[in-house]
């Protein structure tokens, strides 16, 4: 750990970080290579991203979860409530990604279906439109810095990540090593073929 070496900045947007994933943060701190921030819901994540931009210190890597709670933000809370019948399926993280990286996207998700919810893509589009109509502008984030770490199956999520141009993805599992965040960060920086979504 060099004393004067500039540490990189990492943001993890994840609501389970303090629970079953708690061991996965320690290697990041222990490596001494990162200034690490944790956001535990969408609103908190957006605050971190906005604040980083304002301070001129953007994150070098942002790791997104997909099944996220909304946090203290009325617009996202409303979006979340709309899918209260299945909060797991609400996938606010996915809406967040589309909002950050596609902004005014229309029509591209129309064909996206989930098992048991053929209107999944349409629903996301409607909610994105609501965000746009509410006049909420997304903070700027470089999509090259993004990685997705989620329980979602690659078959379900990869077509969307490919479309968004997010290249780094890992699926959570019981065997995931504790240093997964460090590995994902390296995959973002080094642009290796590790943690790539298969082409769908």
């Amino acid at each position: 750990m060099g004393k004067f070496r500039q540490r990189k900045r990492m943001l993890w947007i994840e609501d389970s970080a303090r629970f079953e994933l708690v061991e996965q943060m320690a290697p990041v701190y222990y490596s001494g290579e990162y200034i690490f921030h944790l956001a535990e819901n969408v609103a908190d994540g957006i605050d971190h991203l906005r604040s980083a931009k304002r301070k001129g210190k953007p994150y070098d890597v942002v790791i997104f979860d997909i099944r996220l709670p909304p946090g203290e933000d009325k617009v996202w809370q409303d979006l979340y409530k709309r899918t209260i019948h299945s909060q797991v399926e609400s996938q606010l993280g996915l809406i967040l990604l589309y909002w950050l990286f596609e902004g005014d996207l229309t029509g591209n998700l129309a064909n996206f279906k989930r098992p048991g919810n053929p209107d999944a893509g349409k629903n996301i589009e409607e909610r994105l439109a609501e965000l746009r109509d509410n006049g909420v502008r997304p903070p700027h984030v470089d999509k090259k810095t993004a990685a997705v770490y989620t329980v979602e199956q690659p078959g379900l999520i990869c077509p969307l990540l490919n479309h968004l141009g997010i290249k780094v993805y890992a699926q959570k599992s019981i065997d995931t090593p504790d240093d997964i965040l460090l590995q994902l960060a390296r995959a973002v920086f080094e642009e290796t073929n590790n943690f790539r979504c298969p082409k769908w």
């Binding site: 303090r18 708690v22 061991e23 943060m25 320690a26 701190y29 944790l38």
Partner: peptide, 11 residues
């Protein structure tokens, strides 16, 4: 994040 402190100190 207090929850990580134990794990960090163990390492």
């Amino acid at each position: 994040i207090k929850e990580v402190q134990a794990s960090f100190l163990r390492h």
